[in-house]
Design a protein around this nucleic acid. Structure first.
Lengths: 161, 161
DNA sequence: TTTTGATTGGCAGATTATGCCATCCGACGG
DNA sequence: CCGTCGGATGGCATAATCTGCCAATCAAAA
């Protein structure tokens, strides 16, 4: 959790990062085998990467569509007054909505945030927007784009030499 | 890998999905303990969820900033001719760029794709755009927004009862 | 109440993780 | 050129975990 230490990653560390971004549940033995180390130093390195904060955690990828979330939308939000309180409040409210998968504060003349949203269908979407997003204090504009097809998502961060 | 079977998830399955979305590397023993089952049926359920395709895989989350990727951009792409070949070619080219973390085909009068990009700095970004994205056949417009702050990302899919 | 089918819990063997220590390697100083 | 020193590695032993198997349990239907 300490965002400092391994400023110097050697090829073993890089290889570990590449592999666990692809196979987050790979066993230490197989990891060691693939990077060309024995299990002991491999595990030590993995733990060090975790401790350093470079590895933030592990996630299972769940197929949203199979869970019934057939609609994905990108929502652009503009705020009327740009005070820290407004922003903080908006972010808190939005974080409480489980359908909001992602919230980014972005540049743009008419836009302050982009939300990525997953819902079951348009009815769901309309209700989320009108009941929970538009009413947040300070929200002055909402513009929606829908995802026709996710070409790819959840790619690993490149870890070049 | 078979996207069919568990149309009916009971509370155990739901709990498993919730937990492994938060702690992708949790041991089966602790998972079992937390959901209130013994390890055997817990592992059986987990494997079934994996086999069914509901769990697509596991990923380690790596702190991009610590790896030097200090700039994140959302790039909106418009294509001049909407033929399947153009789209397929664009997607292939873009998939070959490791800086492109995500590619979504979206609705919008002037937009066909949104890319999420991670680079080290503006120089990097300019080079990626001019050298690798703009030149792709059919790309007629590029508009960039930069991420000032990622409020949150990588949230799990809600798995409601 | 009895039957039937699915799910569970516990057990045993196989696999994996983890701490410890001697060894190895490279850098530095003598 | 050789010896010392610090850090990293590999192997080993123990602990923990995984995983397949079987009898027991539970629930729904007859």
């Amino acid at each position: 959790m300490n965002p400092s230490q391994p400023l110097t990653l050697d090829r073993y560390d890089r290889r570990i990062l590449e592999l666990i971004q692809q196979e987050g549940r790979i066993s230490n033995q197989e990891l060691a085998e693939r990077i060309g180390l024995s299990p002991s130093p491999c595990l030590r390195r993995l733990r060090a990467l975790e401790e350093s904060g470079l590895i933030l955690g592990y996630r299972a990828l769940v197929d949203a569509r199979q869970l019934g979330y057939r609609l994905m939308a990108l929502v652009h939000i503009s705020m009327d007054r740009h005070t820290p309180e407004r922003f903080a409040n908006f972010e808190r409210q939005v974080a409480a909505l489980p359908q909001v998968q992602e919230c980014l504060m972005i540049t743009g003349q008419e836009v302050d945030y982009q939300l990525k949203i997953r819902v079951e269908d348009m009815d769901d979407y309309q209700q989320l927007l009108l009941q929970h997003i538009t009413p947040i204090e300070g929200v002055s504009g909402v513009h929606s784009n829908f995802v026709l097809r996710p070409v790819f998502e959840n790619r690993g961060v490149p870890v070049a030499p």
